[in-house]
Write a protein that binds this DNA or RNA. Structure first.
Lengths: 213, 213
DNA sequence: TATTTTACTGAACACCGTTTATATTTTTGC
DNA sequence: GCAAAAATATAAACGGTGTTCAGTAAAATA
């Protein structure tokens, strides 16, 4: 009898519908409007029902977190087309910034909020697989750059961390609204993205200077 | 008759007591435990009374925001003792990081939350004075470095923005919990601050390389 | 002293995440 | 086919949030 199987399918389908609603709420109305009650209304069930399919709200947020990572990875797919490591590294940075600017809500969910990453620490054996993979890709690229004569004497691990931190800093200050409220940016009437991109330009210059001659 | 004057004093005193309670709640129990009701309980008044002294919660948060900036400025007082600009720049970075690590809650209030900066945009003529002043100090230092032969060809404005972004990125990733959950940090069992400081070290190396020979 | 102004609060509104007892439906075992 | 058991769904409640408003008590004014 396939009753058990069907029930399992139903359960998965319901989980799917809950996540779908959460996802839509997130994209259409922002992080703060994802509430158990909003989700419940959207799927036309009572709030309590959600708890039959998810332990708590964190579990739902975590699912969105993973969705976000999938979306981000799509922005990196094209990078294999750049054979020269340093060029690829710069394109990685551009792709990262493009992702952050086109999906600021998703970016802040992935990298600026404490909740989701704390959930990972407590419930998933402290393993942040998506983060590990992304960082590893960055580090590999940095090591290839080293083979090309870039970054002599620099530790790939630490340099990768610096690169990530720097680009994250640019994106985070932009998304939180801090970057565009220091005076020069206001005065010159620069757009958000102008400031961000010119900051990134300086960074590429700086990195480009780190090469054996 | 000094009635009016006394009443004004009383009003200010009450505002002071409210802010004091908010401040203590913030430091002792964290940002999320600053609630109008908690504050009201602490000063032994009803929640509604708070609204006779502050327009809304944002106004209280903004006051804490300014307190935070004062605290941060204290961490920068000693920098005048470093006459050589580049050295001073590095010490600025160290002071910034020291502030962020010793007062993570305050740091995230100042630079990682959208609410306070949005309040500034809406209510204070879009002028973020504290931010302007701090950034200006950084830029001045960068320009002095240029006179010493550092950063040839780099725009001080853009380079300052990069420096701020990079250090902010290091602090933000640390405080949000992301930095210490990429694999290598976990494996090597490095402390939070080890990763941060080694990342900053690389940054100082990179900056130091940008000098006319 | 009577009136007006000021200071304060209880109760409510509309939310939030989460739990529990209860009711309904579905499946199982006979 | 029917009763027992299991699964599913929910109403209602708990304790929390920011905020508003009508009403009360106290103080200042005339």
């Amino acid at each position: 009898m396939g009753v058990k199987e069907r029930k399992e399918r139903d359960k998965l389908e319901m989980r799917g519908r809950i996540l779908e609603s959460a996802h839509r709420l997130f994209l259409e109305r922002g992080f703060d409007d994802i509430s158990i009650r909003n989700i419940a209304e959207a799927i036309e069930y009572s709030p309590a029902t959600i708890y039959l399919y998810f332990k708590d709200k964190n579990e739902i947020i975590h699912a969105l977190h993973q969705d976000g990572f999938r979306l981000m990875n799509e922005h990196f797919q094209h990078l294999t087309a750049f054979p020269r490591p340093f060029e690829r590294l710069i394109e990685m940075g551009k792709a990262y910034i493009r992702f952050a600017t086109t999906h600021p809500q998703v970016y802040s969910l992935l990298f600026m909020r404490g909740e989701p990453i704390e959930h990972i620490i407590h419930w998933l054996q402290d393993e942040w697989l998506e983060g590990d993979r992304a960082f590893e890709t960055l580090k590999q690229t940095v090591m290839l750059c080293k083979k090309d004569g870039y970054f002599p004497g620099y530790d790939p691990q630490a340099l990768s961390m610096l690169i990530w931190s720097s680009i994250h800093g640019i994106c985070a200050l932009r998304i939180s609204g801090h970057m565009n409220h220091v005076k020069p940016a206001r005065d010159q009437n620069l757009s958000l993205d102008d400031v961000m991109l010119s900051t990134f330009d300086v960074f590429t210059q700086v990195l480009g200077n780190l090469k054996k001659q």
